[in-house]
Structures are given as C-alpha cells and as structure tokens.
Design a protein around this nucleic acid. Structure first.
Lengths: 315, 315
DNA sequence: GATTAACCTGTTACCGATAACATCTCAGAT
DNA sequence: ATCTGAGATGTTATCGGTAACAGGTTAATC
C-alpha cells in the first residue's frame, strides 16, 4: 500500500500538502497540485480509509435495518441491497445488515431503515446519526419510495381503459403509509368517475386472497378488475379466479404491485408496477452519504411508477 | 467513547496493561486483570475496531461476491446475507456486496463467494485473502452447502414410499457441482432399485418446465413423480400438470429443492428440501473469520437436508 | 550475598491520516 | 527601507490501539 508519505516523497513536498491536495485543493498552488496528482497517479495511491476514519471518529459503516419479519421479507430487498451496496462501495463505505433479532452494538455513520412501524418512530428519532427511510412515511423522515398513489391511480386508469366495469381494491391489512397511499390512488381514480369503491384488506399472503375469491365467487360478477396492493395478493386472486373457473384476462382483470420477482413465476405474468429497486437503493445510499457529508437534510425522493404489462389485463 | 486510556486511569495501570488484558491475558497478573476488568465494566468499554484495524492493516470488511445474474438471483440470497451479517456483526466486521458489475477496488479481509463458474476459478485462486464458497465445488475451495446428493436421494426415497412407480428427474441445465450432486442422489436411489432413470434438463425457469409437461403430456403416465432440481422448475412442472388436467398429488408427484420462498406462494405447497440458509450463512461467516484469525483452512461444512412436506406428494 | 533468569509492567514508536499551529514568502502600505 | 498581513507550506500532536524494547521485582542458583 502506498501512503501519503510515499506520494509526498515522490512529489518532494510534505505529506500535509498531499493531504491538502485531496481535501482542500484550493489551498494549494496549481504547480504543487500538478506535481502531487502526478505522483498519486504514478504510485496508484488510494487513501487509507481506516486511518481517515480514526481521525474523524467515523466508522464508514452504514446500517441497513430491515424491520419486517424475515418470513414476509420480500425478495426485492435483495435488489435494494445491491443498489445500496453499489453506491456505498463507490464511496468506500460498507454495510451492516440489522434485523430485529440482532439489534445492537457497533457504531455506524448512518442508517437506512425499511419496514418501519409506528412503534419504531421513537427510537428512530433518537438515533444520533443520519437516517434515510426506504418507504414513504408521515413522520418527517427523509425517504426514497415509488409514488404509490400514482401507481394505483395509473393501474386503475389502465383497467378502465381496458374496459373493466368494476374496480375492486385488494389491500394489505396494515397501517403503513404506502398502503394508505395506494388506497388513495385507487380511490381518487374511482371517485373521479363517480364509481362505487370496494375495498378488502388481508394480511399479505396469497392464500388469503385466494380464499376470499373462492368463498365469494358467487357474488363476483364478470368484467371486474382486482387491483391488488402486492404481487402476492395478486397471485392469490389470480389463482382463486382460475380455480373457480373464471377467465383472466377476458372476464376478470388482476393487477399487482412490486414486479421484481413474483410475477416471473406467475402464469400468466401479472400486470404490475415495476419498481427499479436497484436504482432506488442507490438513491438511498447517495441520499444518506450526502447527508453524512453535508449534514443537511436531503428531503424525500419519489420515483415515478412504471407499469409492467403482463397478461392479467385484456388488451 | 471510552478508550484504553480511560480504563487505564480508572484501574491505575498503563494503557498497555489494559491492552494486554484484552489480547494476552496470560501475561498479566490476576490481581491487575481483576482491576482492569472491573474498570472496563464500569466504563462500558468497547475496543475501537478502527484503531485496531489501523495497526494490523486489516479492513474488517468481508466481500460477498454474488456471481450469478441478478435476474436469476434466487431470493434465498437474502437469507444468506442475513446469516452472514449476523456473524459478522458479532465480530464487528462488515459486508460489501459485490456483483459482476461492480467488481473492483477496495481492500478487504476475506471473501464469501457464491455462484462461481468454471471461468472464475483462476481469479479466485489468485485472491490474496481467505475465501469461503457458498455452494459445493470441486476445485478444493472450502465451502458451505447442503448435502445435495443426500437431498435428492431422500426425496426419491420418499416418493417411492408414497407409491409412485416412476421417478423422473428434472434438472437444471448447468455444469455446476450442485447439479451433478443432485443428479447423483437421484441416480443412486433409482439404481439401487434397478429402475430406469429418466432425466431432463432445462434452464432454471418455470415456464420451460411447464412447456415440457404440456408438449409431452400424452406420453406421461399416471403414478409418476417429478423430482426437480429447484422450486422454480417444480412450480413449472406443477402448473403444467394441473393445466393438462392431471391430479397432484393423486396421480402425479412433484418435489423441489430450496424451500425458502417460492413454495410459500405455490398452491399446493411444494414438497421440497428446506435449507436453513440463515444458519448456512452464519456458518460461512464463522468459517471465514476463523480462517482469517487462525490462517488455517477450515474445510468444507455440509448441512444435512431436511424435507419440507407440502402437498405435492400423496400421503 | 551476588548473579542471573524469569516475569511483570511501563515507555516509546508507529500504523496513516488530519487539525492546529508555526514558519516562511512576498506584495502592498507606511 | 521597514512593517504588516495574507497566503502557501511545513511541523507537531493526535486519533486509539499494538509491538518491541526497557526497566524493575522477585526467586532460584552458586
């Protein structure tokens, strides 16, 4: 490993000058700067982050707190992590994964938190390091998320364009903000057209949605589209309809939300909201690192939803 | 943050003595040790890993290299990471996620690698830091994996016990070691009973398996069990059979391999090998950290497979 | 009783960076 | 010509640990 001193010798300056070239380039003359840059290049110098961390009492560690149960952990977290990791690696930060089970020790420079519940608000507010949430919230934390409301609004619109006469919303039985937003998107579209809303909510498990369809099959009329708050629920609805003898997409429409993994294994593929989770993860990372360096809030970052066209809405 | 010096003052010793109590406790008298421990407890002292890392030129970073395409990245990697993270956090290490796309810079103390192909053997052998593979291999790298052969052997045995007369193996069209082992497990069971083996291989996508069933439906006789190398393939087989009008589990059996996530959304649930990926991840971490500290190879660690009973084999 | 060895404990230097302070230079003011 | 001060560069101390060496006791040996 080449160090500051190596570069300094090569450039015939003191190591402090080299340090300044890196951190306060405006305080060094162009002439010396050129020398130093040249030396750095020749020696392929990379700063030792550990030493830097020691002086400024930082850790270069970001904690990713996944507060949801592992059981319900959606596969898209994998993509989230890939996105986060991409940014962090670039800045020589590294990641610690934290779940409710190993929630402890160890310092860090910042947090990315996902799956927050109301009960978590207190301790999160007390954290002494910058925080970015993955997933919208109404407690004033900076966050990165898809525009959930717009997502359901668009899907509802699409279902109408495709000629379905009734829109039923299948939601997740939770008090989280994203759920309210998705419902709001549905309701807005429905109310703009003076239609009667119909909402049902379940825990996010496909078999609950399936049961719902099967037990209520007689009451369900053709030409209905089911707008689901997740791909899991959509898969259940789809299966329920198929089992009951209904035809998708001819007589019934189904849409989901997420579109990372589940719709790959459904057949037909589900028309859903495709979230570019990797990019969103990168955004989380950048947002947080900015915050760490500038010590200023970066605000929320909302991604516009994109529809991924599957085979569960007719053409 | 309390430091060595704080503890030293409190215990009325030099900081070197405190350091020794931590790293070479045999070189300090019991009397002083007691004092120091007492002081450490009172001050809630935790060593600063950054400072330690600076002197021994380590990074406390482990790189997790996921060499598979993100598209085919199975959700179980999430669990793998949780397992790894659990161990690493305990030892104050942290993780960097590396994919083929951001394969670069940054030092580290060791690697956990998964999804290795033949073409990767060379550079992996050239790595200067300890390596543990997740997934069996035949190149002499230490690894952690489920006993793939035993897994398929057991499933085949189970299918026979449940009265299926014909066993068909549906494999993944790849040259990776785990695939050979699963095939070997199937073949061993089949040959022990002098049955005729039948193997088919596809890329690991459910719709390929589904197509296979549908195009060959006429040739497929009842009382056959399909032993699949992955849950994805099993889902495809299952769907193909159901679509073609076959009855599972009455006339046809289906088994998978993995059991982390996919079988949660299948209906009925697939009888599969449940891998405790979280534990395996922890094992990877421990194996690697051992290796880093002792500088000795720790060997392979093979987990015995457990069957997760779903509804795709009859009782 | 002096010598030596074994064993503790403390001192110093260092890992690779940065901040704070010291020094030096040179332009502009007096 | 001397003084002043701004701006550039170098020196020193520091972050929190550890290794290597130095010094001080005590017990065993002659």
């Amino acid at each position: 490993m080449t160090t500051l001193v190596d570069v300094a010798k090569k450039a015939n300056v003191s190591k402090m000058t080299v340090s300044r070239v890196i951190n306060h380039p405006d305080k060094v003359t162009d002439e010396l700067k050129a020398l130093v840059y040249e030396a750095m290049r020749e020696l392929d110098y990379h700063p030792n982050m550990i030493a830097k961390a020691l002086v400024d009492k930082s850790t270069r560690i970001i904690k990713l707190c996944i507060l949801e149960d592992i059981d319900t952990t959606e596969p898209y977290y994998m993509n989230l992590m890939i996105g986060i990791a991409k940014t962090l690696d670039l800045h020589q930060y590294s990641l610690q994964l934290v779940t409710r089970k190993n929630f402890d020790i160890g310092n860090c420079d910042g947090y990315i938190i996902t799956g927050m519940r109301q009960q978590d608000v207190d301790w999160i507010k007390n954290l002494k390091k910058p925080v970015v949430m993955f997933g919208e919230n109404r407690y004033g934390f900076d966050y990165v998320d898809t525009n959930n409301k717009a997502g359901l609004y668009k899907l509802a619109q699409l279902a109408l364009q495709r000629g379905y006469e009734k829109l039923v919303y299948i939601g997740i039985d939770s008090k989280e903000s994203f759920e309210y937003s998705r419902e709001a998107g549905y309701l807005q579209q429905v109310q703009e057209l003076r239609m009667l809303p119909e909402l049902h909510r379940f825990d996010n498990h496909s078999h609950l949605a399936e049961e719902f369809i099967e037990t209520n099959w007689k009451k369900i009329k053709p030409n209905t589209a089911f707008l689901c708050a997740s791909d899991r629920l959509a898969i259940g609805i789809l299966r329920g309809i198929v089992r009951s003898g209904g035809k998708v997409p001819e007589d019934f429409g189904v849409t989901g939300f997420d579109g990372v993994f589940l719709n790959q294994v459904a057949s037909p593929k589900i028309t859903t909201i495709k979230q570019s989770i990797i990019e969103m993860g990168s955004a989380c990372g950048e947002n947080l690192l900015d915050k760490i360096e500038t010590k200023e809030s970066q605000g929320a970052l909302v991604f516009e939803p994109k529809i991924s066209f599957g085979g569960t809405l007719r053409d």
